[in-house]
Simulated assay, not measured.
Amino acid sequence: MKQLENKVAIITGAASGIGKCVAELFVKEGAKVAVVDWNEAEGKKVVSTLGENAIFIKADAGKAQDHERVVQETVAAFGQLDIAVNNAGIVGAFAVTGEYGVEDWDKVISINLNGVFYGMRYQLPEMLKKGKGSIINVSSILAEVGVANSSAYCAAKHGVNGLTKTAAWEYGTKGIRINAVGPGYIGTPLVTESYSDEVIKELSSRHAMNRLGKPEEVAELILWLATDKSSFSTGAYYPVDGGYLAR
């Protein structure tokens, strides 16, 4: 039997990168998946390769009403909700804190932090109907450390970890597990399109393995957290960072 047989999952930011890999792996393991993204063309392209066990839902991660609609459409299509991967995120602008644009700040917080809250706000009540579920929030190594010129991103990801721990305590006796994963720098468009080759080389050197991670490596950890193999894991933060935080 496949690991996610008869399970239904929502994955945000699933048109590319980590989210896309998670969607592909989940379907391979038997799940029915809602591929959620603002990029309709790329999202539909992903779904076209996954067959009848996947649907595309266009949504803005920074809008609460979109998250509510995503849950409604997922349940309408597949009848239930068992797993949610809140993965959508952006890098945002680069500037020192005293010069960081207010609009830039609001955009990053809206998608990277508010978006995770909005997702959980509507995912949790649906999971409570079954009395079981697993939520995996995609955080970052920058939820544990700071880095210059990325105050909004770091603040949002630190917030994701706090939100994850709080919700895990609230739902620990209700059958719903909530965890966060912290990728290092991963070779996805989020990184490769945000940094020059020179910067990417320098970023690679910050990992003990001296390379960027692969989205598939993050997806495998998320899969474990989505299954009952991780049945005693909740409220935890799992780095998948090639040793970045070991220094």
Rank of each mutant, 00 (worst) to 15 (best):
N39I: 02
K32F: 15
Q65L: 15
K45I: 10
I83W: 09
K28T: 14
T12D: 08
R69F: 10
L25R: 04
K58L: 04
N87W: 13
V85F: 03
H67W: 14
G19P: 07
I57D: 02
N87C: 11
V70S: 07
H67A: 07
V36L: 08
A59P: 08
G89Q: 10
A54I: 07
V27D: 00
F26H: 07
N53D: 15
A64N: 12
G43L: 03
E42N: 13
S48N: 11
E68I: 10
V46I: 08
G51L: 06
T74Y: 02
G89E: 07
A88W: 00
E68K: 15
E52Q: 13
F78W: 01
S16G: 02
I11T: 06
A31C: 07
I11F: 03
A76G: 12
G62K: 00
L50A: 11
V35F: 05
E24S: 03
R69T: 13
F26C: 03
G43M: 03
W38Q: 14
V75A: 12
K32P: 03
S16D: 10
R69H: 02
V47W: 02
I57E: 00
E40C: 10
F56W: 02
G13L: 01
A14E: 06
V35P: 12
G43P: 02
G89S: 09
G51R: 03
Q65P: 00
Q65N: 13
I11Y: 01
A76E: 14
A54F: 07
G43C: 03
N39E: 12
K45F: 10
A41H: 13
A34W: 05
K58F: 04
G19S: 04
E24H: 08
A84Q: 07
T49V: 13
T49K: 14
A31N: 08
I55P: 00
D82W: 06
Q72L: 14
L25F: 00
H67D: 12
D82G: 02
I11P: 04
F78I: 05
V75D: 03
V33E: 06
A23F: 02
V46K: 01
E29T: 04
L81T: 10
I18S: 06
V70A: 01
V27S: 07
E40F: 10
V46H: 07
D82T: 04
V46F: 09
K28P: 01
K28G: 05
K63F: 00
A14V: 06
G62M: 11
A14P: 03
V71S: 12
K45E: 15
E42Q: 09
A14F: 01
C21E: 15
A64D: 14
E29W: 01
A23E: 13
I55E: 00
K63M: 12
V33T: 05
V85P: 05
Q65H: 12
S16C: 06
I90W: 11
S16Q: 12
G13N: 01
